[in-house]
Design a protein around this nucleic acid. Structure first.
Lengths: 231, 231
DNA sequence: ACCTGAACACCGTTCAAGT
DNA sequence: ACCTGAACACCGTTCAAGT
């Protein structure tokens, strides 16, 4: 793996540990896996370096050998999860379906990891696993006639919307925010002369679950993008 | 202010403080103002109950008389800032311009308070100051022929995109994330046979500042929404 | 090279006690 | 009614010391 062919003999501490115990050494990969577990179990606000260490059966200080700080660990977890998204085989003749397919795959992954979705907001996830996705976008949309800059900005926009929606889903799943539950009634009881629209449409607005909203946003974005296709 | 006309005499501690000192009593409003100051000065990660208390010249415990917890304080600050957005006089005949105007006003406010923009992500800002805005949206878009549910979902989408973009602006302003600076070169040096699109368009993608991106997103959203107008 | 314990400088929140 | 100090149960990160 190194560029020079020669290398010094192993130092004594490289070799077999104590007494045949597994003593599996920690790797950055294992730290990321443990971090993802913790994030899935306790969410972002419960995500603690000490908790990750505990998941690994070690102390918090140990993690810092493999990772710079908490922020970097979150970025690594984010990239790991992004890598789980499967890309459809590019086919620009049906680019709208392809975008829909990708968006739904991404949504599913974020729904499985709402803590990661929350962490992704306000963090630009530039990791190696994002690169093939960007390439895919440029290819599919470029062949469909969307200029590269519009294509890449659209990809940003789609990621942002997808993550934010996953977060909202995650929040309303937890009993955590009771705000949304009472929202319908709150709107309905406002003074009707001041807020005629809200009071009359309150029920209709509260209706519609997370999937409806996601699909609406996706459809709107695709229709908007379609207007950028040049012939 | 109370429903019964009678009331007991003031208790002794109601009356003039020590010795003519101002001794201005704290109010929830002042706490929110101080919190906004702190958020503007040190950002969300520096936003601390102790820091807010210091801004008020008191101890952290004092705050808890006026506010439930940190989360509620953030919601209050969010609503305060939302209240700063000015609404154009409704005129549905030029609804596209009206949405543009509103979006730019909102963007400006969030740009002045990037810490608040960050806090808004992943938090549903249901406060009293949001109500007139929702009403305005339903009115303008409803009269233009957009169904109420589409109108309210669009408002959500616009808020989400605006906040997220303000966050990205705020991040790239701070030297904080050096990730974006090196992004262009990173993309350009990727193996060209594996990533032909990225490598050839790297320069073009890195170009375009925050305003360009915001305007693109806004335009795309409006074009998408236009397709929902029913005649 | 990799791991550890203990420490440092912080957090949010509570609670008895003051005025 | 409102404010305070001190405490509790935590944090992220560093660092000397171990193997």
């Amino acid at each position: 793996m190194t560029s020079s062919g020669v290398s010094a003999p192993d130092p004594p501490w490289w070799d077999p540990p104590g007494r045949g115990e597994p003593r599996t050494t920690l790797t950055r990969d294992k730290v990321v896996t443990a971090a993802l577990h913790v994030l899935d179990e306790v969410g972002l606000q419960g995500f603690t370096m000490r908790r990750v260490a505990q998941e690994l059966g070690t102390g918090a200080a140990t993690i810092y050998w493999h990772i710079a700080d908490k922020e970097q660990l979150l970025q690594l977890v984010l990239d790991r999860v992004i890598g789980e998204i499967e890309l459809p085989e590019p086919d620009s003749t049906r680019w709208q379906d392809q975008i829909r397919e990708f968006a739904r795959a991404g949504r599913a992954v974020f729904r499985d990891h709402p803590g990661v979705a929350l962490a992704s907001l306000g963090r630009t996830p530039v990791g190696p696993n994002l690169v093939p996705i960007m390439e895919w976008f440029l290819r599919v949309l470029g062949e469909a006639g969307v200029p590269p800059r519009a294509a890449s900005w659209f990809a940003d926009l789609l990621a942002l919307v997808g993550a934010a929606q996953a977060v909202e889903d995650g929040l309303s799943v937890k009993t955590n925010n009771r705000a949304l539950d009472g929202l319908g009634e709150y709107l309905a009881q406002l003074p009707a002369d001041q807020f005629p629209q809200l009071t009359s449409f309150a029920a209709e607005m509260a209706r519609g679950d997370a999937d409806d909203r996601s699909e609406f946003a996706l459809e709107l974005l695709i229709r908007g993008l379609a207007s950028y296709v040049r012939q």
